[in-house]
Structures are given as C-alpha cells and as structure tokens.
Amino acid sequence: MTPESQETNKRKEADDSVDLSLIKSLLDSEGDTRGSLISLLQGTQSIYSYLPANALRLIAERTGISLSTIYSVATFYSQFRLEPAGKYTVRVCHGTACHVQNANAVTIALCDTLGVTDGGTTEDRLFTLEVVACLGCCSLAPVIMIGDMTYGNLTPNEAVRVIKSIRRREGALK
C-alpha cells in the first residue's frame, strides 16, 4: 500500500467515525432555507473543524443538492477544509499593510516553531497554520489571529511567544 492510500484510508476511517447526530439540529433549522448551503457547510465545519465526507453525504440527502455540487462549493471557498484542523487555527495576515511591515518574517518564524507549512497541522493536532489575505487590522500590522483573538504589532519572536504560551496552557490542562 502506498503512503498516500494509507493516508486516504486513515481519513476514511476518521470520517466514518464522526458523530452525525451533531449536525441534526443544524439541518433541521436551516436545511430547507433557500440558498443555505454555505451556512450549512460553515455550521458543519464549526462542529467538526472540517467537512467530513459522510457529513457532506448527509447534507446532500437532506437538502437534495447533489454531492458533486456540494463538493464544488466546498472546494471553491478557502474557508472550507476537507481534512481535520488543529485545535487552534493560526491565521497569519499577508495583507498589503502586513506585507509592507514584513509579515513574511512572522510566517517564517511560525513555520519554524510549528514545524509545518501554510495549511499544515502540527502532529499533536494543536495548531493549523493558515496564511490569509487580510484580517482588517491593518493599522496593527503585522497581525496574526488565533481563534477569535487578534495579536498585533508583532515581531517574529513575539509571534513565537504567543504560540509557546498557548502550548504551555494546553500542557497545564492535560
């Protein structure tokens, strides 16, 4: 078996094991609303951190939208992911203002300390790194956003410190 197909199998197992009852109330409240596909996918992703294949199948069954249409929408928008994400999504802003204030150095430092590249998830499933276009906090450039929390006026070292403090907190929780 090739490493890729091993990976696919692993993902399939993970997908099959998700608890579909979690999206039932979402489907009941929004499933029949016209044009709600994107909100359904957003709701699903906020529950599972990604879009599991069998959840997409259930949405297709429930809404009557074909699975291929759902897949085409899910792959069009950069917000959606088909792989599980880490507990924290670290979004590094690469907007114009951040670019001018050397966001690149922040990204390099974060890639180094997390050991992943853009879009990657750390092995302990704690962090997913995403390079994004603009977070709209340009006057505090360069900025990163972790969950709903924005950190501004960063240097590469400070960005690394933020990650380390979350790691410490998580370690203490365990």
């Binding site: 907007g95 114009t96 603009c134 340009c138 006057s139």
Partner: peptide, 11 residues
C-alpha cells in the same frame, strides 16, 4: 465583503 488587503473601513 471587504476583501481589499489594506482596507478596514467597513469592519
């Protein structure tokens, strides 16, 4: 949908 990088008036 204020997408222009460098703009945050609407936000």
């Amino acid at each position: 949908d204020e997408g222009d990088p460098g703009a945050f008036m609407d936000r």
